[in-house]
Design a protein around this nucleic acid. Structure first.
Lengths: 201, 201
DNA sequence: TAAAAATCTTCACTATAGTTATGTGAGTCA
DNA sequence: TGACTCACATAACTATAGTGAAGATTTTTA
């Protein structure tokens, strides 16, 4: 965390904390509660609730749980759409663990979620598939809509059994309800961006 | 949290923390990561990750966010189905803050979420409405299905403008899509259980 | 089965989350 | 205007989350 001027009240911290804090304050106001009231029913001190709401403190897990309980909301609600708000989400490619998966490698695909903050929103994945990789044994079928863009290499996407051969720069969009799978039936590794936007779940 | 024997490693804490810890460990193992690896990519110490996984520490918000990032999952995932997993969810009635809302009181209703853990699943509420309470000014309309059971008192439920008068022991079920509101047009306080099962959102 | 390596836990410490108590500032009512 | 109340912020302190290094424990290798 950031330091403070002398001693006493902590200075402003990260944007994430401010976001959560704003959420707490908004929900509290929505219910017409004062700081005193919320602190009473959560068993937390007014001071810490005030600080959390203003993004000046970094609440612990149990504190978050107590707040959620006091506000009568599921804990997860504090996080919904949270990282999405700090748009854009930048993902450094160096983070990827490419050990053991090279152009020559055969075996499992490497997935990386590009939008780790989403919670019911759009979900993007970076997927590297080695030659021969095949997901036909368990065709996916879920709700929403999908979009795929081929960054490099080639890939065959099967929708309801129909093959669509995609090459670098190609893309495809379809309903996730359609049973779908894909296969890299080529010599090179294929890198693709896969986006899934669920309608409902 | 709980105290410790002498000094050093903290003792076991709440069941909630253990649950989150188990989740972290499971996800880490799933990705074939060691403590060292996870601590490296999260920037956290091995020690604290180990303690969190074993439910011996109460992670702060930022720590949770770092862990989620390192595990490539949305932060909210730590909470999904969490409280739901410790079935059944028992809610002590003493918890209810009934100050200022008695049989004689007029004003706002008192809501209490009975299933705080739900995250897209079933949602049950305990609702106490004082005489004269009326939600007709903002009729609800959302997805899913609703069910209401009257524990005591009486209440008028309006579905698409049609009034359904309910007394103690009565219940009603309907689609949440129908614009609905309710009113306590009687002399006594009404206590009801309201269950909402969203299909999708 | 002993040595070596890898993975995980414990220990002593430091930074900071959370507490109690006090301070500030905006309404109300006399 | 001043004494009161209500809602929130600040200050100094205490408990504990998180760190770095050393110690167990398990797994691997010979």
């Amino acid at each position: 965390m950031t330091t403070e001027t002398t001693n006493g009240a902590p200075a402003a911290t990260s944007a994430l904390l401010a976001t959560v804090g704003n959420k707490v304050r908004a929900m509290r106001k929505e219910k017409g509660m004062t700081l005193a009231k919320l602190s009473e029913i959560t068993g937390l001190s007014q001071a810490i609730v005030s600080q959390i709401e203003r993004g000046m403190a970094n609440p612990s897990f149990t504190t978050l749980a107590q707040l959620a309980h006091g506000l009568d909301i599921p804990v997860g609600k504090f996080f919904i759409g949270q990282e999405a708000s700090k748009s854009p989400v930048v993902r450094k490619s160096e983070r990827r663990n490419l050990k053991g998966v090279t152009r020559e490698s055969v075996g499992e695909a490497v997935h990386e979620l590009l939008t780790p903050g989403l919670n019911g929103g759009i979900e993007a994945q970076w997927i590297m598939t080695p030659p021969g990789h095949d997901t036909s044994s368990n065709p996916f079928s879920h709700s929403g809509e999908e979009f795929c863009y081929i960054v490099s290499g080639r890939k065959d996407v099967y929708l309801d059994g129909v093959c669509h051969s995609l090459s670098e720069g190609d893309s495809i969009t379809y309903s996730s309800e359609i049973p779908h799978w894909y296969k890299n039936s080529y010599e090179e590794v294929c890198v693709a961006i896969w986006v899934n936007a669920p309608h409902a779940w």
